[in-house]
Amino acid sequence: MEKQILKILERDARTSPEQIAVRLGATVEEVSEAIKKMEESGIIRHYKTIVDWEKAGKEQVFAFIDVRVSPSRGVGFDDVAKRIYNYPEVHSVYLVSGDYDLRVVVEGKTMREVAFFVAEKLATLEGVLSTRSSFLLKRYKVDGDVFEEAAAEHRLAVTP
């Protein structure tokens, strides 16, 4: 039941324990208890809202920065990553395979602001060999949500 609860909440975190209980054929107490346990154990980290900031009129730019790192004794990927993710400008950081080692998503008000952050803060970090920046131009799908108006109903209204 836990996995089913997670799937429901991942899609819509505002689904109430009452609604979940009906869908899964469980009692409200069982569902609330399971959610509480998963919150406490960190399986559920927190609840947040997916916002289309562009629609909300907020000026905002994102860039994907690929970072090549040379780990050295005592300074591994984790240490470099930590020095990067502590900046509030950094939206997310991933360790990846391939030509580059870290994939960093940086948020800023303008392209200039982001470019300066990369040049001054990221590129100059000890252990960082090189960076490659790509600015985000358009979001099509984020965390499983497609960012476009829902398609019209294609079905006939009443069919056998």
Partner: peptide
């Protein structure tokens, strides 16, 4: 609101 449709709503 149609509950009259005899086919999946998924594409």
């Amino acid at each position: 609101v149609s509950l009259g449709v005899g086919e999946p709503d998924f594409d």
